[in-house]
Amino acid sequence: MERLKSNRAGKWLVQNPIWGFIVIIFVFFSLSNEYFFDMRNFQNILVQTSTIGLIALGMTLVMINGNIDLSVGAVVALAASLMVDIQSWEAFSGWGNWQMLPALLAALAAGTALGALNGIIVWKTGVDAFIVTLGAMLGVRGLVFIYTEEQSFFAMNFTFSDIGMSSVGPVPSLAVLFLIATVAVHILLSRTVHGRNTYAVGGNREAAVNAGIRVGPHMVVNFMIVGFFAALAGVTLSSQMGASTPNLGREYELWVITAVVLGGTKLTGGAGSIIGTFGGVLAIGILRNGMNLMQVPAFYVLVILGSILIAVLFLDKQLTRKGAEALKT
């Protein structure tokens, strides 16, 4: 243990235990399944996890702030519905493929605006983000059903679904999008003033106020970012399916939070990283993909994922606790 902490790589691993876990499951699935270790399969994993992954990037910021956003799943459905519906409006019928642009802008704007609304309510009322976004989760889902009249929409323009399946060179576009977004948010969090303030606000809100950080507007920005990414995820998901359903994105908030927490972000705020979140997203993706290839029935997969979540966090606690100083609880 001490030796592990003494060298640099070991230290990094103690801070990001999820990557050690990824190595283990990667080796395990590579050895136990002939289809797993394959470039195509890796691309698959990236595409499959990109939806959860995009939202997790924004969620990481919100959770480091000490908040949470439970409404992301409903926002996915709303954005997907707007995306597929608006591009088929008659007003844009003569626009060719450009008819997707107003739909895309509307979907992303809706997600960002809902994020702003969540943030402003949390800021101005002081009600806990858990409650505010729980309300938003129910309310937005209701809006989706009202708006779609409980119908699924199908994209008439096949270019839209082609985009979801397209590749940039050998790599699927959605994987590229996810990787670019990951790098962008990583830089935002680790190198900008906004990122530094994100840690400060979550680490000690009172000290942040005393340091002259405008905590309320700061939190609103992060809610807008997660709203934006939820909407973007809705767009990519509908593109993959070439359709939208009002039930899209159910339980996504739980998967996203699982990934973020697996990646080492603390529910109490102040700690976390995009590298960790990326690891959490990949871990879930690899486990699902690997078990799927091994033909583990879907419900068993859930049981295993749930157990792993608890086990990894327990391990994290063991690795980071400060020996005898820790409070007995």
Binding site: R196, Y199, A200, G203, N204, A207, G270, A271
Partner: peptide, 17 residues
């Protein structure tokens, strides 16, 4: 409680404002 973000580094605390 009011002055420091305990989880942040010495440098980041000094430069915060």
């Amino acid at each position: 409680e009011q002055g420091l973000v305990l989880g942040m580094s010495c440098r980041d605390n000094i430069t915060l404002p």
